[in-house]
Design a protein around this nucleic acid. Structure first.
Lengths: 325, 325
DNA sequence: CTAGGTGCAAATAATTTGCAGAGGC
DNA sequence: GCCTCTGCAAATTATTTGCACCTAG
């Protein structure tokens, strides 16, 4: 993460004056990594400047939370901790009960399930907390705290690429197979087109991944930060099965579902990040998926039209809803 | 939930004497539902007996946590709350930020994902916390707190049955289709057998569900407590697809995966509960799934043997591991 | 009789607040 | 000069502890 001081002049929650103390505290906070308690921060600040009041630190932390620079997290220790939230998406935590370090991860799959539960319970979720308490590898093996979590923009970009690649592979397999088995000539053209697109993208993504790994030799050994099975995880298989039974329409619906899922995923995380390589990859990929989605939707509609009153299958699956712009 | 006092003589954490105060506090706590703060409990206790010290309540709460009667939960309010843990599995929470009520749910799917993340990060999880903060339906629609959460043994039994039924249906479909398309005569016998078993179980389960609903007219309208897609959610489709490609071995593996998944699920929750109807259903079902699993495993081994060195596919999928006893 | 259990009041611990003075605009 | 920030000390809140006393086994 960059250590250069940032421009917070626009981050003032209501108004608030430029003040040396506040600026100093904010800068020190942003320079730290991990999850600091108010007291940790006081200690660090006091190394620089003996006469900083505890109250000011608490007030500044509250100000940072309001300004969206910091996020309050509670690991059940009876006191709050604070983490950066500027340029960081919300994430979940692994908390070691032995060394009290905490590690971050993000799982779109978990988020999806949480949304499903909330919907089923007619609950409007505002934020969710997922914390895994236990012991980390270092503690179990008696090691002292080893290398840092390595959670950097590069890791994020790496995971973004891995997921994009897995999604492309899965899509490529589906469209290739689809083009082979479909009985509908027009659909075959679409599937062929999509298959060749996936192939091309796949090549680009793999090259980009190789380039990324080049930049940091240890990158591939760093722990996964971002988890998402989504479209890459066998959902397409369902579609192929439908095709084999001659149900092109249902197969298209499944393709649509997959593309929409990955479009949403990449869009969402792309928007949460700022100015990083991961963000770029995410947004580019979101666009590509969007195009595929549109294409499939057009094709689906055309197919339904051609098949006339073959709308039975469409009704059963409730049809494709409006796009996820 | 029963309001009859229970026998806590064996629940003493180390030793500890029978004392009127402690027993009184424990009984009052168990009679309450929801998530009480220490202070809530003090207020309630003091209605009965004016001279109970705050300290004693705190000490008794700690004792209950040690004894496994209570569980401490932290909803980030700066104070702890306590919930029953006796005869209650660990669960997750929906927390309304408006009315400050909290609701419970359980999602095996979320637990599975959490385990995957922990494994990927080489972390040994001890417990996990999932909290969804937001606003409940009552608050959004300006209603006052409506009917209770209705989280009772009956709801648990209902959800258990629903999941069991969905699993049976999915399995029935798979085995029926499998019996139809497999080219292997011996496998067909096994699939036929399993299909007829699933059909029989399905009938029983549906009758039992109807009987359950009979007992409480509102039961079906109560919110879902237990979420699990597991084997019921299209995983079997993957298996059918393999079969269609003539890969009986892979199809069997997928059947094994599904049966194992549901066996584990029912075993796990069956063991967490005590003496309830839900527990019975879970354990019975776990046994049935176990039998199917064993049958499939035997068949898988026989098939591999018959096919001689056709072990390539088996290697690719790493084969079925030892049973989940 | 003796190990706990209990009440009361004091001690901690994290965080907040009142208020007078300092400092930016 | 006004309005906000800051430091300090006092207040607040949740929880724990020391200690003298009480009670069950």
């Amino acid at each position: 993460m960059s250590t250069a001081p940032l421009d917070f002049s626009r981050l003032k929650p209501k108004g608030g004056k430029r003040s040396s103390k506040r600026e100093q505290i904010v800068n020190v906070f942003l320079r730290q990594e991990g999850h600091l308690s108010a007291d940790d921060l006081v200690d660090i600040i006091r190394k620089d400047d003996r006469r900083v009041s505890r109250a000011t630190v608490y007030r500044t932390l509250q100000w940072m939370v309001d300004a969206g620079i910091a996020r309050k997290v509670d690991f059940g220790e009876g006191r709050s901790r604070f983490e950066h939230s500027y340029r960081q998406p919300r994430h979940f935590h692994l908390i070691c009960q032995t060394c009290h370090r905490s590690f971050e991860f993000l799982s779109s799959d978990v988020e999806l399930l949480i949304e499903e539960v909330a919907t089923a319970r007619r609950f409007s979720p505002a934020k969710s907390v997922v914390q895994i308490y236990g012991s980390c590898e270092d503690c179990r093996e008696g090691r002292k705290a080893s290398a840092d979590d390595g959670h950097s923009d590069l890791v994020f970009a790496r995971d973004a690429l891995r997921i994009a690649i897995a999604t492309e592979r899965s899509g490529l397999e589906f469209y290739t197979r689809a083009a082979k088995v479909t009985r509908d000539a027009r659909a075959r053209v679409v599937f062929d087109h999509l298959a060749s697109e996936e192939k091309e993208h796949l090549g680009k993504l793999e090259a980009r991944y190789a380039e990324l790994v080049q930049r940091d030799r240890l990158l591939e050994s760093r722990p996964t930060f971002l988890f998402f099975k989504g479209a890459a995880s066998g959902i397409f298989a369902e579609g192929t099965e439908k095709l084999l039974h001659g149900n092109d329409q249902q197969a298209l619906l499944i393709g649509i579902k997959c593309e929409r899922g990955s479009h949403r995923f990449f869009k969402k995380y792309g928007e949460q990040f700022e100015e990083s390589e991961g963000k770029q990859i995410f947004l580019e990929f979101a666009d590509e998926e969007r195009e595929h989605l549109d294409l499939l939707m057009r094709e689906y509609r055309a197919l339904v039209k051609r098949q006339g009153k073959a709308g039975r299958a469409g009704r059963a699956a409730s049809g494709p809803r409006a796009g996820a712009r």
